[in-house]
Computed example of a mutant assay.
Amino acid sequence: MENIKKFERIVHLFFLLQSRFALPIQELTEKFQVTKRTIYRDLSLLERAGVPIVHSSGSGYSIVDGFRLPPARLTQAEVRSVMIAEKIMLHHETESVRKNFERVLTKIKGSFQGHQKNEILQLQDKLLINRKPNEKDYIPDIMDTLLKSSVDKKLTRILYKNAKDDVPNLRTIEPVGVFNENGNWYLLAYCHSRRDYRNFRFDRIQKLDVLEKHFHKDHPLVSELNKQHGHSPYYTEIAVLVDKKYAHFLSFERDNFGYVKEVINSEGVLMYFNCSAHPTSFVRWFLRFIDVGEIIEPIHLKQELLVIVKAGMLRNGSSKARPD
């Protein structure tokens, strides 16, 4: 059994080296949960098997460029995962990403065996993702352009319209990376005019120009910066109680409001949120469930909900004249 695990690890190590530009030793030890000494032995075995491995100081280990073995045959489970990924990516809101993924998938399918292609064909009607692509008004190829400019370290100029501003303004930025939050794509960049890191929502970028001038600052990882300069570092803790019979209806959109967890008790389903959006937006979303649920805390949101309901009743009440 130990020999089988060792063989599987070495094979996996080879495929990782073949798929990456370079792999640091620390990443490999964490990946396989073994010591550095074990990784060194595995690398040595690959070299003795004829795999030309090189080491670059500061980057890690890699296979000599140009050396490739024929693609490995995928297992049946991996083939099914490819089909599921295809179904999901059909609904990606960025058209250029959908098209690029389709081309990549065509190349992957080219390595399938005959019976695997047949299985994919038979599985097409077994999985349904019943929603339309959430098309956003993005600049063409915005995702590719921003990611490439962040890798190439090129200054970028954007025409950006804030949610509160009527007139868009020009910003010169150093793109760091992109992230998705609550259904929206954001660019995280260092803004020259603000002299700090800022988030820019894709659908509010009206014009995009990559300049020929490079920036030289090494920015932190987008994951690290997002924790420090996230869309909203503050949130409102909210608890609601919903009837068990209807609680599942909230699940379709609750993640947009920072859903954390739920607890089922004798009274119903308690749901907890860390809402980074404006609390009023949560209240107005929850309005549709006021006949089957209530806001438990904070109290001021419960009061705000009642104020909105009363105002709505006055505005749409029977006292208004109705057309004949």
Rank of each mutant, 00 (worst) to 15 (best):
Q113Y: 02
H231Q: 11
I63Y: 07
F286W: 08
R288P: 00
G268T: 00
S281Y: 09
K99G: 00
S266G: 00
N226E: 14
H216C: 03
I120H: 01
T280H: 01
E27L: 14
I25P: 03
S232K: 08
L241H: 05
A77S: 11
I39G: 02
H92N: 14
Y246D: 14
D65Y: 10
L147I: 14
E102D: 04
L69C: 05
D203Q: 07
V11G: 01
V178P: 04
K213F: 04
F257W: 07
A85Y: 03
R195G: 13
L159H: 12
L146H: 09
K126H: 10
A77M: 10
S319K: 11
N274W: 02
V269D: 04
V222E: 10
S57D: 12
Q18R: 08
K161H: 06
N162S: 15
Q303G: 03
R20M: 01
T236Q: 05
P133I: 05
L69H: 02
R73F: 05
I84H: 02
T35G: 04
V309S: 13
K302H: 15
F15K: 07
S57C: 11
I63D: 10
F21L: 03
I53A: 09
H115V: 06
Y138S: 02
E212V: 04
I205H: 03
D144Q: 14
V167N: 05
F286G: 03
R80T: 00
I120V: 15
I10C: 00
D324V: 11
S56M: 06
I53R: 04
D165R: 07
N134Y: 03
V263G: 01
N316Y: 15
H278M: 02
D196N: 15
T29Q: 12
G58D: 10
I10G: 01
N118S: 13
S223V: 15
I25S: 12
V292D: 05
K207S: 14
F289A: 10
L13I: 05
A189N: 08
M89H: 03
E267K: 07
I84Y: 08
S19G: 08
L170I: 08
V11M: 11
D209V: 12
L250T: 13
V263A: 00
G114I: 04
K126Q: 15
F257K: 01
L16Q: 09
R288K: 12
G317W: 11
A189F: 01
E294H: 04
S319L: 13
N184Q: 12
E174I: 03
L225F: 11
L155Y: 09
R48H: 13
Y272K: 02
D196R: 01
R9W: 06
F249M: 12
I120R: 00
V178F: 06
Q26P: 05
N100F: 05
L123P: 02
S232W: 05
V210W: 08
N182G: 04
L69S: 13
F21N: 11
D203V: 04
L187Y: 01
F286T: 01
R322E: 14
W285V: 04
F32A: 07
K126F: 02
E294C: 06
N130I: 09
T38I: 09
A77R: 11
G317R: 06
L314M: 06
L146T: 08
I308E: 11
L121D: 07
F32H: 13
K302R: 14
L147H: 03
N180L: 04
